[in-house]
Design a protein around this nucleic acid. Sequence first.
DNA 1: GATGAATGAGGTTTCATTCAT
DNA 2: GATGAATGAAACCTCATTCAT
Lengths: 222, 222, 222, 222
Amino acid sequence: MTRGAIRAAAADRFFVQGFEATTVREIAGDLDIRAASIYHHYADKQQILYDLVSSTMTLLETGVGEAVRAETDPSSRLTAFVVHHVALHALRPREATLGETELRSLAGERRDGVIALRDAYEALLRDVLADGAAAGVFVLDDPVLARFAIVAMCTNVGIWYRPDGRLDLSEVAARYAAMAHRVAGAAPPDPAVIGRHLRLAVTRYTPHEEEHHGPANTRAVR
Amino acid sequence: MTRGAIRAAAADRFFVQGFEATTVREIAGDLDIRAASIYHHYADKQQILYDLVSSTMTLLETGVGEAVRAETDPSSRLTAFVVHHVALHALRPREATLGETELRSLAGERRDGVIALRDAYEALLRDVLADGAAAGVFVLDDPVLARFAIVAMCTNVGIWYRPDGRLDLSEVAARYAAMAHRVAGAAPPDPAVIGRHLRLAVTRYTPHEEEHHGPANTRAVR
Amino acid sequence: MTRGAIRAAAADRFFVQGFEATTVREIAGDLDIRAASIYHHYADKQQILYDLVSSTMTLLETGVGEAVRAETDPSSRLTAFVVHHVALHALRPREATLGETELRSLAGERRDGVIALRDAYEALLRDVLADGAAAGVFVLDDPVLARFAIVAMCTNVGIWYRPDGRLDLSEVAARYAAMAHRVAGAAPPDPAVIGRHLRLAVTRYTPHEEEHHGPANTRAVR
Amino acid sequence: MTRGAIRAAAADRFFVQGFEATTVREIAGDLDIRAASIYHHYADKQQILYDLVSSTMTLLETGVGEAVRAETDPSSRLTAFVVHHVALHALRPREATLGETELRSLAGERRDGVIALRDAYEALLRDVLADGAAAGVFVLDDPVLARFAIVAMCTNVGIWYRPDGRLDLSEVAARYAAMAHRVAGAAPPDPAVIGRHLRLAVTRYTPHEEEHHGPANTRAVR
DNA sequence: GATGAATGAGGTTTCATTCAT
DNA sequence: GATGAATGAAACCTCATTCAT
């Protein structure tokens, strides 16, 4: 029994029921162990959530950071941001969505840490938009609201996307890149750039097999 | 002590802490009454949430429905939808946001009822987008994703908007109407239409004084 | 169900098993109520102990303080101290002994408060001994050690005294007054003074009937 | 890692926190080993306490027994008892005090064994007092109470004595011998006898270096 | 001899809810 | 309409102890 298995089981439960409504016994039951065994690996229930949220947010921030820095023109950088963000939320909906919905269940230092991570992450998009506006590539009435809107709509993918759904991930990523460009007042994104970043993102964010064996189609209420 | 006061206190708590993390004693304490007294007005805790969510969603569905039906051209109807949606989430963030975040805490018939309401509500936007696309006023790669994106970005306003913030509600509504039109591939919205619907929405959604006496600036984590 | 009944049941258990070894369920079981009901009256388990210890120590400090101030000559004041101390520990062995044995189970402010009470109490004897030594009525090699010795031997009464034992309380009080006077290097105490204070002490410290209905002969290990 | 080190660490913890409040993990932590390793040396937690209490009480009973038998006159025998008792409680406060405070945490045969040891030990003093009274050297109103008083006041030394305190051990021993003689109604003890027994006691009871490396001044609540 | 992992048992506490007053 | 008291259910977490390695 590894920390990874506990994390994965907890992510499923937290995503579907919420942190507060999930009991440690349920997580343990999903893994056929006893609740006390959880505490051999995690100090308390909140620590599991913190581990999930902070590691996922770090993964995303690192991935997007590298991708954005690898591009030079604003349009490609916006594409990089959106594709990575959408891909993570589609490939790891459980972990990724928790950073939005369950943040309030963290307290004290753990909450502060996650908020700092999130702020650093959103700063990446802020800079992309600012640079694009300065370069005349983007036309933004209000860069702050555009950022809020782009993040909100891309994050939402984690709620509805299903691997066996009508659209596959490459289509979803392309559509969201296009919509984000529209919001930013930019010309449509280059399909080649979308494809390049999608390959990177899929490699990076696809969960390893040992991390998750539960039902893939248990979903949150939508 | 009225149901309204209990609703308002509960909305505050549910919004900030979440339904599961809120205790009946806390709600009662905010009103300087005892927990048992709550049960004179509500059968159980879930009923308070259901009351909040269903009445708010009904309010929104009715308001948007009327507004959309009052307009004939697709652009004005999209404007009507966005302005109403944004206004409700800005003016009643507590109640409005619960329909997204706390839906999973409802069970059985109550959940089904709210989901039916929400589906009816989103159908309004689906029709607006479909009509606009058919009329050639909107250019949509994927009408479903566009709908998801517009709803997600507009709902997000409830999380960050503050009455004393940098932008007042009319500016916010105008910016979101513009961004939604961009997502829809439409020409910018008519400011007159925005203003007209904003006046309607403010009249309809501004909470009555007796409904809320708590701190206006207690906010969820953002 | 009153706080008093919970206190009495807890005192029994704490005295016999110790605070840490006593469960809230046991206390509740002794009273034929459920554990949760205890929390209607006490915030937590420690609060019951604090209530017991601090109220008993206050009772003793007040009683001894008045008695000592009512006397003028050092011998009578020493008698007053010993008779009150012995009587309380004989009549309320459970509560009185907890102040010695279970103090370490209190934490933070509650511990500080009890220690302050105890220090104030022991200061009474310190002054009695100092005055007697200054007046030449007592002959003390070391007033501090004499005080420790007198308190320790009198407190010990709470461990072994039984109402149905070989000696009745008046005999025990007289013997301890005599021994304390010997330790202090004083002439034997006046029997009339012993009797007077014993009557006062019995009136003051005898538990009210409603406070305790449990077995009178359950005792700590000796 | 020896049984002795575990015993010493446990004695510290039991003395300060009590047996029930001490966890096996804490003891192991103090020794930089894991809890499971404790079970190579002791069958269970209670066995550590039993080992501590019974060995210390045996040490005391043997030492006092020899010392008392080595003297012939009652005063010297009382001196021997008090000096040994005080010295042990001053030199090994942790172990010695446990015999009083933590006895109730032992169960069954282990408890019976320790009580038998203690009764045998107190019988030594009972005989000393009885012989002295018969010889007219002691004047005792009640030999049982005198015994209780002497044991209680001498045992108390373990609670407050510190090696670096105001009084050194020889002074403390002399004062308690004098007070015990007063309680017994005897003439003051012979300083030479006090000194002789103190040397014996110090040799016998001073802990070996390897037994204890913890902080010498961590004390119980007083 | 040491320990990482696991766990049965149980501890304290919380909480939604009921009900007599 | 309000509430003090009570409680069943269950939550989180602790801990002594076992055992395979």
